[in-house]
Design a protein around this nucleic acid. Sequence first.
DNA 1: CGCCCTCTTGACGCATCTCTGACGCCGGGC
DNA 2: GCCCGGCGTCAGAGATGCGTCAAGAGGGCG
Lengths: 227, 227
Amino acid sequence: MNRVLVVDDEPQIVRALVINLKARKYEVDAAADGATALRLAAARHPDVIVLDLGLPDMDGVEVIKGLRGWTRVPILVLSARQTSDEKVEALDAGADDYVTKPFGMDELLARLRAAVRRAEPAGQPDDSVVVETETFTVDLAAKKAHRDGRDVRLTPTEWHLLEVLVRNAGRLVSQKQLLQEVWGPSYGTESNYLRVYMAQLRRKLETDPSHPRHFITEPGMGYRFER
Amino acid sequence: MNRVLVVDDEPQIVRALVINLKARKYEVDAAADGATALRLAAARHPDVIVLDLGLPDMDGVEVIKGLRGWTRVPILVLSARQTSDEKVEALDAGADDYVTKPFGMDELLARLRAAVRRAEPAGQPDDSVVVETETFTVDLAAKKAHRDGRDVRLTPTEWHLLEVLVRNAGRLVSQKQLLQEVWGPSYGTESNYLRVYMAQLRRKLETDPSHPRHFITEPGMGYRFER
DNA sequence: CGCCCTCTTGACGCATCTCTGACGCCGGGC
DNA sequence: GCCCGGCGTCAGAGATGCGTCAAGAGGGCG
């Protein structure tokens, strides 16, 4: 669910945009002048701004500069003016895109999607997907396991197995599913692999490997990771 | 100095773009068909791509998808076709902007600047461009590595590899990802390259290259930079 | 034209990981 | 009380991956 701020002083344009955006599951705020736009942008932190340049109270380029002073939110400029100078000025002031009126709604929405998409963090450097137990910690993004203040070295197969279990934390994962996810679709029955590698994981991560508290065996069915 | 890849099969357009771009201190590569474009994009790592959709050998959208498979480099589409469908398709395939021919050079350049600008890393307060370890220092912005008070000379490939690792500090980076980011999308398996260059980096930056403390090998999975 | 820096490529030894079989334990069914 | 299937453990053999060295190819620059 993305939030959009629509800034335009023509009510019918705002109405058309709001209807179309809401139909596509955007959250929409609207402003009819520059001052309101700046206030709403600060208050609501939209993911993208659609900005008409012809506002009653201030120059559109000033709005762009005001925004760019503190945020990199994508700004999609909407304008009736087609001259090249206008476009260059708005783009160089910090706008991300420039669409001239009259515009096609499909195109505008596509440009909006493009703006939102590229604003999304790449591989999110900080999206640490960390799962903790009282004994150890698993960071799925960094591919790191931690225990007693030290890193635990895991082999690729061990990691893969751990990953499947952790992603299904609390749920039972069948032997067949584990085998097929880790070893490939043709390995449905080699449950001895599982026994060996579950033992490795327990030895490396459990406090008392022979009485596992987190890697639980469900006899005849599969295994379960319990945090 | 930014690098631009211009892709168009009309020589006069290419010529006009190359002249204008070079006059503005861009480094320019040019391709007349999709295959060349993909190859050059991989080899030269441009900062932005200007792509004509009407190529002789493949559909422009396919070129976009081919690029988006491994890079987020800004793509500015140039096309004679004005229909909304074309634009939507190209934008949703991953293009960043769409300009119809005939285009104004000023506007195109402004859109190019906008594309490059927003692709630049956000100057966030906490993401310092300098990364330090107790042994050496890496300045990502200045493209310099420092050790024992002296600059360390790195070849382009060494630097590229170091950059990818440092940007993902603490996280495991898979061999495939490293190869594709440094050598291009078609190098997913040549792990011998990695071994050679990791050895170089270690020899130049580690205190004891045979017992690396910062460039950690995770056997079978990839490498990790630890500060 | 020739030098030098880089990148690529192959070969080798070594460490590690994966697979495999054997064995013992435990609980449930007969 | 015995049998049997499923599970945990161990250790060895083979396969794979890694670090290292060295030589050749390619390109830029004087």
